[in-house]
Simulated scan of single mutants.
Amino acid sequence: MKPALITAGASGIGLAMAQAFERAGYHVHVTDIDAAALGACPAQWGRHQVDVTDEAQMAEVIGAIGAPDVLCANAGIAGPTALVEDIALSDWRACVSVNLEGAFLTASKAVPAMKAAGRGAIIFTSSTAGIYGYPNRAPYAAAKWAVIGLMKTLAMELGPFGIRANAICPGSVEGDRMEGVLAREAAIKGMTRDQVFAGYAAGTSMRRFITAEEIADMAVFLGSDAARSVSGQVIAVDGHTENPDPKL
């Protein structure tokens, strides 16, 4: 079976991607920093406890897998929520390190084997924060914009070797993280959860959050032969966000 490697693949969007690629017939490998989450993943998956910001660990896991047919550079963290003058340099660096340097290391360590194989698709998880400016989220938005620049550069560099690169930009995703956001905002504003949700959903034409599975479906498409001429593209899976709420 064709190997697919998903970073941060033991939970959330990454887990949905891993499950979708398994259904599509791939041999799934996931990395995650969370040992407990990895242990809960199916035994037939390749499970690798890895910090994506550690160059040696990323080199080791790629060496063990070889050339992935699909590489999903998915690992990321939210980073601080604050005005730029209130963000500590250490928090900035931590956010950029995981979101941008982790994506760089994931791709750079896999590219030599993928070039030798003469095939492959690299899929970066960016964000709608990589398309729009987001007040109070400077490090996250900056890193996600940079991921798109990295992707477009790799699409140019790697196309002659039969390797495609694209980026998915999720919007607000259903799940524990966004439920926490809704609860915190509701408490601060003296509103109900549903009232806060309505404010977020109003920024999308579909008036709803998206699911991790919808993002995973796009990843499987981008990794497949059906997308064999799709490269260098930024694809939002966000229910059509025209005027994003800057709190997202």
Rank of each mutant, 00 (worst) to 15 (best):
G12R: 00
G162K: 06
T204L: 09
A56K: 07
I122Y: 01
A212Y: 02
T241R: 14
K189E: 14
G232Q: 14
A67K: 06
Q49M: 14
V84Q: 02
F124N: 12
S90A: 12
M17W: 04
G203W: 09
G9K: 06
L83W: 03
G9N: 07
L89V: 11
H48A: 09
P135V: 05
I235L: 15
M151Q: 06
P68A: 11
E60S: 13
M151Y: 04
V234T: 14
N99A: 05
E157I: 04
M114F: 08
A16N: 14
V173N: 00
A212H: 04
M178N: 14
I163W: 04
V181I: 15
H27G: 10
M178G: 10
V28I: 07
A216M: 03
E157P: 06
C41T: 09
A129L: 03
T106V: 04
P139S: 09
R164L: 06
G120M: 11
L5Y: 01
G118E: 13
T81E: 05
G130Y: 01
L15Q: 12
I131S: 09
K247S: 15
Y200C: 08
V181P: 03
E60V: 13
A165S: 12
A226M: 13
V96Y: 00
R119L: 02
H48S: 10
G223V: 14
A8L: 00
R207I: 08
V28R: 02
A183V: 05
A37F: 05
I65N: 05
W145M: 10
A201C: 15
M206K: 13
G171I: 02
A16D: 06
L5R: 03
I33K: 00
E101F: 00
P112Q: 15
R137M: 10
T125D: 04
C169L: 13
Y132N: 03
A10D: 07
I235E: 07
E85H: 10
V173H: 00
D238E: 15
D32E: 09
A64Q: 07
D32G: 01
E55S: 08
M58E: 02
V30Q: 06
C72P: 01
V52P: 03
T211Y: 04
L83G: 07
A117H: 08
I13Y: 02
G12H: 01
T204E: 14
K152L: 05
V234W: 05
I62L: 12
E101S: 05
E55T: 03
H240C: 12
A64D: 14
I235A: 11
D54M: 03
I65L: 12
L154C: 05
A59C: 06
L5S: 02
G66E: 10
A187W: 07
P3W: 08
I122R: 05
V173S: 01
A73R: 01
E242P: 07
A56P: 02
P68W: 05
I163Q: 03
M191E: 15
V30G: 11
D176L: 02
S11F: 03
A88W: 00
I122V: 14
G199C: 12
I6S: 04
R177L: 11
G190T: 09
C72Y: 04
P80M: 08
T7S: 11
V237P: 06
N166Q: 10
L100N: 00
V196T: 11
